[in-house]
């Protein structure tokens, strides 16, 4: 099992670069299925991870958001901040499981 503190730091360092520009959203397949609700898109997921780590914010919406991601990586290529969006979501799932 990986050290959770390291994993947390690794994810947080990356997701904190998010500037909320929304350029990742237009390619996300789950955002459309989720009727455009931001929680089903990459920007929402990345920022829910931020809220979880920094403020401990957690409810059903967080899990719904994180576990509906297809890890298809379409969003990652769009991000001008170079955030590994899909990879961070995958790592965050590992974090939650552990």
């Amino acid at each position: 099992m990986r050290d959770l503190t390291d994993l947390r730091r690794e994810i947080l360092r990356d997701v904190l670069k998010c500037s909320y520009c929304a350029m990742c959203e237009w390619v996300c397949p789950t955002l459309d299925v989720g009727n455009g609700n931001r929680i089903y898109g990459p920007r929402g997921r990345i920022n829910l991870i931020v809220s979880y780590f920094r403020e401990g914010s957690e409810n059903g919406v967080l899990k719904e958001s994180i576990y509906t991601c297809l890890i298809c990586m379409a969003c990652t290529q769009q991000c001008p901040a170079g955030i590994n969006i899909a990879e961070d979501i995958r790592k965050f799932r590992t974090f939650l499981t552990q």
């Binding site: 500037s19 909320y20 929304a22 455009g36 931001r38 920022n47 809220s51 919406v61």
Partner: peptide
């Protein structure tokens, strides 16, 4: 839901607000 509202209360720079609800 407060987490959803939070996602709809930010902009692409710095400002963060709050709201009673989000309507679509």
């Amino acid at each position: 839901d407060p987490l959803t509202i939070k996602l709809y209360s930010k902009n692409a720079v710095y400002y963060e607000g709050n709201a009673l609800a989000v309507v679509f």
